[in-house]
């Protein structure tokens, strides 16, 4: 099986290489947004670039700043291609709505345990229901 149905999605359909971890996501808490890397030392992706990657993570974390920061990151083009989460919070949804950012969440499986790190994936926000496709696992 290489297609995983989500309960909700928004933004454009995108393809990209997955950056995967069983960890949370907060733009303020976890990122150096100037350099485009995960900067929190305790984060499982610490030191890795998120630019143009499809981030596949567990849950939205932290405070409300991400609602602005996705827009700010997109304006500078130092931004992930998409955010795929097991569980969202309203802030991620609000931020994605402002930035017209691609986001998807709510799977029948733990998506972080299912998508291999580095796999080429398609985040299809336009299909009904929306789904994540594994295109190439290498």
């Amino acid at each position: 099986m290489n297609e995983f149905v989500a309960t909700a999605a928004m933004g454009k359909r995108v393809r990209g290489r997955a950056l995967v971890a069983k960890d949370g996501f907060s733009a303020r808490y976890d990122l150096d947004r100037t350099k485009g890397v995960f900067s929190r030392q305790e984060h499982k992706l610490a030191g890795q670039s998120y630019v143009d990657r499809v981030l596949v993570l567990d849950a939205a974390k932290g405070g409300v700043a991400t609602a602005w920061m996705l827009h700010e990151m997109a304006a500078r083009n130092i931004v992930p291609a998409a955010l795929v989460l097991n569980t969202v919070n309203p802030i991620m949804v609000q931020g994605a709505a402002l930035a017209d950012f691609t986001m998807m969440s709510g799977f029948a499986v733990d998506i972080t345990a299912t998508v291999p790190d580095g796999a080429l994936v398609e985040v299809d926000t336009q299909s009904n229901p929306p789904c994540l496709r594994l295109l190439d696992e290498t």
Partner: peptide, 26 residues
């Protein structure tokens, strides 16, 4: 996205908008 059926009236709003978060674009 979050399954709301309708709107609810609110009596106050409280905005977080420091300029590090907003950036120039915000």
């Amino acid at each position: 996205y979050l399954g709301a059926a309708d709107f609810v009236r609110v009596s106050q709003a409280h905005i977080m908008a420091d300029t590090e978060s907003l950036g120039v674009a915000g």
